[in-house]
């Protein structure tokens, strides 16, 4: 069997899934993005008019801005905290399992439930408002989720809280792949902890780090459930997927328009997830 056929055979589960379940829905929605389709009505082809209209739609542009704030604000914080926790929990010590489970617990909980819990914590007179007053800050009068200045950041904070444990776990797996001998050799040569981290840990974590950045980029650009449950897009928290949801399935069922927004988002995510690829392109192994 040639390498090409072997490769295809191994990839067949994915190719079959793609063909059976994803190709038609994706192709259909790409087509709809070029039509004026509203649910229950016949679509007619209008070229790229939807895309052009989106670029002038202040609701869409507002959602785009909020989404970028969300992405840029959460990913670095989540990644750094997750890596730090993974490094602290890498080697066995008494209580390690407790900490691992404790940090991972938020991710085990359904996001709807998490969002409902935080709706309470963020509420007027809730725990976080009390905590803020104790620390000398003035919490927003009607709760963190009902103020233009705090709502999006409150949701971002919750998102970091929720996803840190998950990325920590992936870092932990990545750290396991680094041969212990490399550290031993470096220690013998008198390399400092920072030196070992810079020259061994980070470079060898690169594929896993790439995974984390790409996946977190995709997930963050598509943030939806938190917004839907907590603010319904009010107080400058509408994100692109929330915009798509509202357009497609609630306000006027403008499915074609929403599809166009989805494929603009597709392009944005595609370009942004290329960034880590370009950043690492000089390295020996490509990321993708």
């Amino acid at each position: 069997m040639t390498q090409r056929w072997r490769s295809l055979a191994l990839l067949s589960p994915w190719l079959l899934t793609l063909a059976l379940f994803w190709l038609f829905p994706i192709g259909w929605s790409i087509y709809l993005s070029l039509t004026d389709y509203q649910l229950f009505r016949d679509p007619s082809f209008i070229g790229i008019a939807n895309y052009l209209a989106l670029l002038r739609d202040s609701d869409f542009l507002g959602a785009l801005e909020n989404t970028f704030v969300f992405v840029l604000g959460t990913i670095p914080v989540t990644t750094v905290i997750a890596l730090a926790l993974a490094l602290l929990l890498q080697h066995p010590f008494r209580g390690r399992t407790l900490f691992r489970a404790g940090f991972f617990l938020p991710w085990l909980t359904s996001i709807v439930v998490v969002a409902l819990i935080f709706t309470n914590l963020f509420a007027r007179g809730g725990y976080l408002a009390t905590l803020a007053s104790l620390l000398g800050f003035t919490p927003p009068e009607y709760g963190f989720l009902f103020d233009d200045r705090t709502a999006l950041f409150a949701i971002m904070g919750m998102d970091v809280w929720m996803s840190v444990g998950y990325y920590m776990l992936i870092f932990l797996a990545g750290l396991e792949a680094i041969p212990r001998e490399l550290y031993d050799a470096a220690t013998v040569q008198g390399a400092s902890w920072w030196r070992r981290f810079r020259s061994i840990t980070l470079p060898l974590l690169r594929p896993v780090l790439g995974y984390i950045l790409v996946i977190n980029t995709i997930k963050s650009f598509q943030v939806f459930t938190e917004i839907f449950v907590m603010t319904k897009g009010k107080f400058d928290t509408a994100t692109i997927v929330f915009f798509i949801y509202e357009q497609a399935l609630t306000t006027d069922f403008s499915f074609g328009y929403a599809s166009a927004a989805a494929y603009l988002l597709f392009l944005i995510i595609g370009l942004v997830s290329l960034l880590p690829f370009l950043a690492f392109a000089r390295q020996r192994r490509s990321l993708w």
Partner: peptide, 9 residues
């Protein structure tokens, strides 16, 4: 496939 928001498909 991951880039496509589920609501649209």
């Amino acid at each position: 496939v991951l880039f496509v928001p589920v609501h649209i498909v």
